[in-house]
Design a protein around this nucleic acid. Structure first.
Lengths: 151, 151
DNA sequence: GTAATTGCAAATACTTTGCCACGTA
DNA sequence: TACGTGGCAAAGTATTTGCAATTAC
């Protein structure tokens, strides 16, 4: 069995899988849905609503509100995730030297608490610093889930 | 030497240190600044602008615009950090089963790229799942820094 | 035919700035 | 006194919704 698959073919497979998954979830097979999925698969990094709407595939193709509602449906069906711990608003944190914290957030009630455990990413951070040449490196680590009270 | 310090005293020390640090950076010793720092130190978790403005210490005390500008100054002086990889807008990402990525973001030019290394937090994630009873746990990990092109 | 989806425009919400008064150094 | 800071109000930008028209099934 051949495990060497062209990226194009791979993408094609994944797109069809994605569309089928959406169909199975009750979504309709619309052009906007397919184009959005392709845009995501081609991007390799998280995208904002504006970036999605302005991408070559979607501009002049469908309204920003449509993409917004598509994203919402895809999130509801677990196919898309909205990054970060914000509900619209930005979060700020005080930086105390020598004090780093990771957070555990309930996606249902929104509670944010500190994780009281040694942060396991320092080694990777050092590796990245050495290999990429990035300066002033730091990281953010958040765990999300449904807390016992909300289960 | 006594290492047992009351939380209240500890906080007092930290607040004074913070205020002094601000003074050394050229900021003025205003009431709003001190109240904001105390609010942060009392919260133990990241806060939004609205949360800060509505907190008991700050409500009816100073304007939201004032807090906004204070936060901006504190960020400029490296005493506060704004969480997440957003410049105002939310980021979305497609969820492909079995595919997890961490990201490396340049805080100067905004470039976002995938980190091609095994993610080191699975063990901690399992530990959190067992110890806290959170369900449907997942995590986000981002590294921030200044990329070689921007240095 | 029916129900989901879309476009357009309007409403919300969060963020940011202008301007002048005020307080800190 | 001089300049950073504050309050208030308005502007700017992102998100979200209402409704009628359209499209997928």
């Amino acid at each position: 069995m051949c495990i060497i698959v062209s990226h194009k073919l791979m993408k094609q497979i994944t797109i069809n899988e994605c569309v089928e998954h959406c169909r199975a979830s009750g979504l309709r097979r619309t052009k906007a849905l397919k184009e959005l999925l392709i845009t995501f698969l081609e991007s390799k990094r998280p995208m904002t609503l504006n970036e999605l709407a302005d991408s070559p595939r979607m501009v002049d193709q469908c309204d920003k509100a449509t993409i917004f509602r598509l994203l919402r449906r895809l999130i509801e069906h677990g196919m898309v995730r909205r990054l970060g711990l914000h509900e619209r608003a930005a979060y700020f944190t005080l930086l105390i030297p020598g004090s780093h914290h990771d957070y555990l957030i309930c996606t249902r009630c929104g509670t944010i608490e500190q994780v009281n455990a040694p942060c396991p990413v320092h080694a990777l951070e050092n590796e990245i610093r050495e290999k990429t040449g990035f300066r002033d490196l730091y990281h953010e680590l958040e765990f999300f889930g449904i807390c016992p009270s909300c289960c």
